[in-house]
Amino acid sequence: MRHGFKFQDSEYDVGLSRSADGYRLHHDGQQWPFTLQPSEDGGWILGSRAAGAQVLDHLSVAVDGDDVHIHLDGQTYTLRFEHALERLAQLNEAGAADAIRATMPGSLISLAVASGDSVKKGQTLLVMESMKMETTIVAPRDGIIAEVLVDAGQTFDKDAVLLALEPQDSDAEASA
């Protein structure tokens, strides 16, 4: 497994190599040669070949941490880099999903549970507000609340960890 990019709910295995006059993208068993050079206006010129003809695309690119934001042909895309070692480590970590994350940016209206509470699947954990709508977050499984990481009124970004459930294993032991 190589480096990857997460993009629109998919993950792409990607390699990059230098060629005599540019780079090659290695993806899906294919090599795709291209050139990338800065343009005078601060953007970038992507050169590639399509149907035997040289194609030049003007694009804007900004990198922020692992996020690469690209404006190409009137559309904006964000691809998130995942280092090969990170991907492989993730692949090997068994059942990590013990974090309750915000599905969208917003703020916390009310908390229905506290640290140490045991909860049943489907039970209301909290109510958040986003987009002028209330969203109820329910427990994804039976378990015990390990930690509460937000206070009422607090705003947060998408994917922020709101609550932590105790890991599945200790849970199983507790019920055994």
């Binding site: 480096h3 990059l16 190599s17 990338l36 992507l46 695309d57």
Partner: peptide, 23 residues
């Protein structure tokens, strides 16, 4: 596919751990 290649190519070339090793 072409647009996807373009995006992946640019993203890879702009990502330091990938570009540095290629370079």
């Amino acid at each position: 596919t072409l647009s996807l290649n373009k995006l992946l190519a640019v993203a890879a070339a702009m990502t330091r751990p990938m570009r540095d090793v290629a370079d």
